[in-house]
Lab assay of single mutants.
Amino acid sequence: LSEQDFVSVFGITRGQFAALPGWKQLQMKKEKGLF
């Protein structure tokens, strides 16, 4: 994903996403169907 695509999918930047705890990252990926 490009940075723009990432933001459009998750609503946050890669940096903000990386700062989230692992379980939260997994939850967001599952919600978006990316896992």
Rank of each mutant, 00 (worst) to 15 (best):
L1M: 09
L1W: 11
L1Y: 01
L1K: 07
L1E: 15
L1T: 14
S2D: 15
S2W: 06
S2L: 10
S2C: 09
S2Q: 04
S2E: 11
S2I: 14
S2A: 03
S2Y: 03
E3V: 06
E3Y: 02
E3W: 05
E3L: 06
E3N: 15
E3S: 09
E3K: 04
E3D: 14
E3C: 04
E3M: 03
Q4S: 13
Q4N: 06
Q4W: 07
Q4D: 02
Q4Y: 01
Q4P: 11
Q4A: 12
Q4M: 13
Q4R: 11
Q4G: 13
Q4V: 13
Q4E: 13
D5E: 12
D5V: 02
D5W: 00
D5P: 01
D5S: 12
D5L: 08
F6R: 03
F6M: 06
F6I: 09
F6K: 02
F6H: 00
F6T: 09
F6A: 00
F6D: 01
F6P: 03
F6Q: 05
V7F: 12
V7A: 10
V7Q: 13
V7K: 05
V7D: 11
V7W: 06
S8T: 12
S8D: 11
S8P: 03
S8K: 15
S8L: 08
S8F: 03
V9R: 09
V9K: 12
V9H: 13
V9G: 07
V9M: 09
V9D: 04
V9F: 04
F10G: 07
F10C: 06
F10S: 05
F10D: 06
F10W: 07
F10A: 05
F10K: 06
F10E: 07
G11A: 03
G11M: 00
G11K: 04
G11F: 15
G11S: 05
G11E: 01
G11R: 03
G11V: 02
G11H: 15
G11T: 02
G11D: 01
G11L: 00
I12T: 02
I12S: 01
I12V: 11
I12G: 04
I12M: 14
I12K: 06
I12E: 02
I12W: 00
I12C: 08
T13M: 05
T13E: 11
T13N: 07
T13A: 05
T13S: 08
T13L: 01
T13Y: 13
T13D: 07
T13V: 02
R14G: 06
R14P: 10
R14V: 07
R14I: 08
R14S: 09
R14T: 08
R14F: 10
R14D: 04
R14E: 12
R14H: 07
G15H: 13
G15K: 15
G15S: 15
G15R: 11
G15P: 04
G15N: 12
G15D: 13
G15V: 11
G15Y: 02
G15W: 05
G15L: 08
G15T: 12
G15F: 09
G15I: 14
Q16D: 05
Q16T: 09
Q16R: 07
Q16P: 05
Q16M: 07
Q16V: 04
Q16S: 08
Q16I: 05
Q16E: 12
F17H: 00
F17W: 04
F17R: 02
F17I: 02
F17Y: 00
F17T: 03
F17A: 05
A18S: 08
A18P: 04
A18Q: 12
A18L: 12
A18H: 05
A18W: 05
A18R: 09
A18E: 15
A19D: 12
A19L: 10
A19W: 01
A19V: 09
A19G: 10
A19F: 08
A19E: 13
A19P: 01
L20P: 01
L20M: 08
L20D: 11
L20N: 08
L20E: 05
L20F: 00
L20H: 03
L20Y: 11
L20T: 04
L20V: 01
L20C: 00
L20Q: 05
L20W: 00
P21V: 02
P21T: 03
P21L: 03
P21R: 02
P21A: 04
P21W: 02
P21Q: 07
P21I: 02
G22V: 13
G22L: 12
G22S: 11
G22N: 08
G22Y: 11
G22R: 11
G22W: 04
G22D: 11
G22P: 14
G22K: 14
W23S: 11
W23P: 09
W23F: 08
W23D: 13
W23A: 10
W23T: 08
W23H: 11
K24D: 10
K24H: 02
K24W: 01
K24R: 09
K24P: 03
K24V: 07
K24A: 08
Q25A: 02
Q25L: 03
Q25P: 00
Q25R: 09
Q25H: 07
Q25V: 02
L26H: 10
L26M: 10
L26K: 14
L26V: 14
L26F: 09
L26T: 12
L26I: 09
Q27F: 04
Q27P: 02
Q27H: 14
Q27T: 03
Q27N: 02
Q27G: 06
Q27V: 10
Q27E: 14
Q27D: 07
M28A: 00
M28C: 01
M28T: 00
M28Q: 00
M28R: 00
M28P: 00
M28I: 02
M28S: 00
M28H: 02
K29M: 09
K29W: 12
K29N: 11
K29C: 12
K29L: 07
K29Q: 13
K29Y: 08
K29S: 13
K29E: 15
K30E: 15
K30T: 08
K30N: 14
K30I: 07
K30Y: 13
K30C: 06
K30F: 05
K30H: 10
K30L: 09
K30V: 11
K30D: 15
E31W: 01
E31S: 04
E31D: 13
E31K: 07
E31A: 09
E31V: 05
E31L: 04
E31G: 07
E31H: 02
E31Q: 06
K32E: 09
K32A: 13
K32V: 11
K32Q: 10
K32W: 05
K32R: 14
K32M: 14
K32P: 10
K32N: 14
K32H: 03
K32G: 10
K32C: 07
G33W: 02
G33M: 05
G33S: 11
G33N: 05
G33L: 06
G33K: 06
G33Q: 15
G33T: 06
G33V: 02
G33C: 15
L34K: 13
L34N: 13
L34Q: 14
L34F: 15
L34C: 15
L34V: 10
L34I: 15
L34R: 11
F35P: 14
F35E: 14
F35M: 15
F35C: 15
F35I: 15
F35Q: 12
F35V: 15
F35S: 15
F35A: 06
